[in-house]
Nucleic acid binder design. Structure first.
Lengths: 214, 214
DNA sequence: AGATCAATTTTTACGATGTCAAGATTGCGG
DNA sequence: CCGCAATCTTGACATCGTAAAAATTGATCT
């Protein structure tokens, strides 16, 4: 036999699974302190280890934040998919739903959202991070593809459709997270999803609207 | 006589005008290192003074960044106005022009832009900062007002128009500054302004389009 | 089982940072 | 010309990220 122990899957040495614990502690630290006051020693303290312990699991702070960003990107993807799962299957509804999921995630996890899009500390070339980020991007691309009935990345109008959709959703998310949502505040308080839907709809590909009309 | 000396306007004691020099040094530091690696001691070094000198002009780093953000907001405002000045005076052209100015500024000053919208280090309640930021916001509000022929802040549809316009422009700016502009890259390289115009136009108030059509 | 070895963690140390307190410098008003 | 307050420097302290050296512990081999 090899080594099928009592422990769950692959229980490392002293701690249990320090790598995982560090990532959880890092998310806490990020949520409470924000990216700009994020401290590696603070993370170590939360995880109950010495300040130099993280070094054996993450080369440096940047590496830890990169791994955390990859995790965030994965959850970001599922936030969109979840929203889509509970929506009508027609292309337009799916388009709106992924946008709502995008904004959902940003509002529920402002720290992670800023880490992904507003920080230069994670290594944006990291393959794992790129993989998950691309997945999220592809959700949007597929939405547009389903509405326009062709691959948007293969012609200029399509690229414009994608850029418009991404921009407006990203803009809303950013403004809300940055505390500049005052214009929308009253409307959102009355009916959040309806207002966001009306906003996102402005980025619906014009070609789709025409197609619908005839 | 009072004190009309040889020096330009109001030459303080030792340095000349350290406050101003610090702000200029801070902008340099911000541009070169980015907000996340910004260092007060680095600023002092650039200005050629000791590391504790800034304390007499700015309570702490946050105060310095607040003053810098206020300066940035002022320039941001003029970037929009400048663009508008060299555009056709009709409402729609003015609307597009301010959006182009918005994005112009972000691309030309990514550091300042991130300081204004992506950092929590400046004190967002500072009266001077609020004043300049509001001026910028009001440009957009006026654009929408001119197109819809009423005050957008006084009814829901108007607020939505403003939010849509701000969101898409802000989203484009953010994505480009964050290095996620790859979808647009080829189009922008071919004709920057035309591409951005087509994008921004998607946030043109629907009521204006109707009005134009009849 | 016991010894060895490598993976993991802690301890210690160094340079850099922001901020505070004390001292030194300098120009202005009497 | 003298004092004084504004300005700047020096020195100190706590905190931070990171590297190297010691210590601990689990796994593997015989």
């Amino acid at each position: 036999m090899t080594k099928t122990r009592t422990k769950p899957a692959k229980a490392p040495y002293h701690h249990g699974d320090l790598r995982k614990a560090l990532l959880e502690a890092a998310e806490q630290e990020l949520t409470e302190k924000g990216i700009e006051a994020f401290s590696l020693r603070g993370v170590a303290k939360r995880a109950g280890v010495s300040h130099a312990a993280p070094a054996h699991h993450f080369k440096d702070t940047s590496a830890l934040l990169t791994a955390l960003a990859a995790l965030a990107a994965e959850r970001f993807y599922t936030a969109m998919k979840d929203r889509q799962a509970q929506a009508t299957p027609d292309p337009h509804a799916q388009f709106i739903a992924s946008g709502l999921g995008y904004i959902d995630f940003a509002l529920a996890n402002p720290g992670l959202f800023k880490l992904m899009f507003g920080s230069e500390r994670p290594d944006s070339d990291d393959p794992e991070l790129v993989r998950h980020a691309t997945n999220g991007f592809m959700v949007l691309v597929k939405d547009v593809a389903d509405m326009t009935a062709r691959n948007p990345l293969e012609h200029d109008d399509g690229r414009l459709d994608v850029a418009a959709a991404w921009s407006i959703v990203h803009g809303i998310a950013n403004l809300l997270v940055a505390g500049r949502g005052f214009v929308l505040k009253p409307l959102l308080d009355r009916d959040r999803d309806a207002t966001l839907e009306r906003l996102i709809d402005r980025a619906t590909p014009p070609s789709f609207r025409q197609r619908q009309r005839k």
